[in-house]
């Protein structure tokens, strides 16, 4: 009777559960592997930059951005204009590590941010100095999960999937998984509409709705340790079918082969 006690006594349970969770995460990593670790720097919205940062921002901009976007952000053949994109867009691209890119790409992928939080805020200020306005970096307040779920289902699920696992669009574009996004990044993406993503300005979703949405996306990400076990990357029925064939039928046919043999064989 040692086994069931081991299985149910709480303290003993944790290492095993951690192991199971680890295994689940490793297995789930198929689609998530598209996105490396999330940025720790991104969660702090840089609001007011220090006055001395202006020099730093200029220096960083000329070093990393100007070759494609032009010295005054006017854009060039290799990169679009940054005039009027707004601080939210710059912060989104930099804090998700999508910018800078070393070469021209159709759709930059999420990565480890290159710059620190302070540097990002300096760059945001520098790009804002080109003029043109554009969406500000949103402030995200705690939101309501229920309303967030409904907004997500109506506006985000068609591309990012109801599970937030992401999906393919046309011509090689993808809607990325949302599991690494911080609330601010979610709000920025909603307001800015990076890449092919539609824009949701305040007449479509007001600030409170964006807060709700950000809260639900955080919850979605928190529930990656799904209640029902390994989520199989939340890829849906075909991944489940694959498991049914490979794992279940594999085990069952192996058992049948062993049982169906005669003892001497």
């Amino acid at each position: 009777m040692r086994r069931p006690r081991a299985a149910t006594v709480r303290p003993l349970l944790h290492p095993r559960r951690a192991l199971a969770v680890g295994a689940a995460l490793v297995l789930a990593a198929g689609p998530v592997a598209l996105v490396p670790a999330r940025s720790p720097a991104a969660s702090a919205p840089p609001a007011a930059a220090a006055p001395a940062a202006g020099d730093r921002g200029t220096q960083l901009y000329l070093e990393h951005c100007a070759s494609c976007h032009g010295e005054r952000g006017q854009g060039a053949q290799r990169g679009p204009s940054l005039v009027g994109v707004g601080p939210a867009s710059v912060d989104f691209q930099l804090s998700t590590g999508r910018m800078p890119v070393s070469r021209e790409v159709q759709q930059a992928r999420r990565g480890e941010p290159v710059f620190s939080a302070a540097d990002i805020s300096a760059l945001v200020d520098h790009v804002a100095s080109f003029g043109g306005g554009g969406p500000r970096i949103p402030r995200v307040a705690p939101g309501h999960l229920g309303s967030g779920r409904e907004i997500f289902a109506a506006n985000c699920a068609p591309c990012h999937g109801a599970t937030g696992a992401g999906a393919a669009l046309t011509n090689g574009w993808t809607a990325p998984p949302l599991y690494d996004s911080t609330p601010v990044q979610v709000a920025e993406a909603v307001r800015v509409g990076p890449g092919l993503m539609p824009v949701f300005p305040s007449q479509v979703l007001d600030d409170r709705q964006v807060d709700d949405l950000a809260a639900y996306v955080q919850r979605l990400r928190g529930e990656r340790l799904d209640r029902g076990g390994n989520p199989l990357g939340r890829l849906g029925p075909l991944a489940e079918g694959l498991v049914a064939w490979l794992a279940a039928l594999g085990l069952l046919v192996a058992a049948a082969r062993w049982l169906g043999r005669r003892a001497g064989e």
């Binding site: 009777m1 299985a7 349970l13 559960r17 209640r227 076990g229």
Partner: peptide
Amino acid sequence: AGAVGFAVTYAQGGNTRWEGAC
């Protein structure tokens, strides 16, 4: 042992993974 484990897991509040494993 597995059956007892299942019953105990259930009685302690239930956990899908442990119930399934047991």
